[in-house]
């Protein structure tokens, strides 16, 4: 007769630090980690462009072009895959809060204005002239909206712990849910 395994005492909330969260995030999904890392890079490089300009001047050109622009372009693809996978699963949809949905709107505005700003750049204008034809009349408004929305988003994220904190918190929650599921299975054995 199989012996019932001992169920470990669960402490709630468990002791975690950022490395546990990152490990949890990676275990849950590589896509999740990629999405959050890229978003972090865009946020930091964006702020560096806007805040350190008077001191760094022209040195920021490659940061704008490569670290923000090219990673931003990749981020658009990762975002599409990520949001599809999150909203496509019932389990992840259930942990999505109102703040997460509002964050989603911020992301969409940042992506649309970011892509519009970059649409008249090389190589996009040569590769996808259609995008520039449609979006370039908006280039006049896009850069300003992009920046202002970033700051509104940061303030919103902290006042209603979303954005910055939700990335870490929701992956922690998902990781935690997974652990719980495992324990339940052990009991059934």
């Amino acid at each position: 007769m199989p012996q019932a395994k001992e169920v470990p005492e669960k402490k709630y909330p468990p002791d975690v630090d950022y490395s546990t969260v990152l490990k949890g995030m990676n275990r849950v999904s590589l896509l999740d980690t990629t999405f959050h890392t890229m978003m972090g890079i865009l946020l930091i490089t964006g702020l560096v462009i806007d805040l350190l300009g008077p001191w760094l001047g022209g040195w920021l050109h490659p940061i704008r072009e490569y670290a923000h622009g090219y990673i931003g372009a990749l981020f658009v693809l990762v975002f599409a895959a990520y949001i599809g996978s999150v909203l496509g699963k019932r389990k992840t949809r259930t942990v999505f809060t109102v703040t997460n949905y509002v964050d989603l709107v911020f992301y969409i505005i940042l992506i649309v204005t970011g892509v519009t700003t970059a649409s008249i750049n090389s190589p996009w204008i040569e590769w996808f002239p259609g995008i520039a034809n449609v979006l370039s009349p908006l280039v006049v408004y896009a850069p300003a909206i992009h920046v202002v929305i970033t700051y509104i988003w940061i303030a919103f994220s902290i006042i209603f712990p979303g954005g910055l904190l939700h990335g870490l918190a929701s992956t922690y929650l998902i990781a935690h849910l997974k652990k719980k599921t495992k324990i339940v299975k052990t009991r059934e054995e």
């Binding site: 022209g58 006049v140 850069p143």
Partner: peptide, 13 residues
């Protein structure tokens, strides 16, 4: 132009 980073904020303004 040595200092410009091509952010297009001036185009917006």
């Amino acid at each position: 132009t040595n200092r410009c980073i091509g952010c297009k904020f001036c185009i917006s303004a």
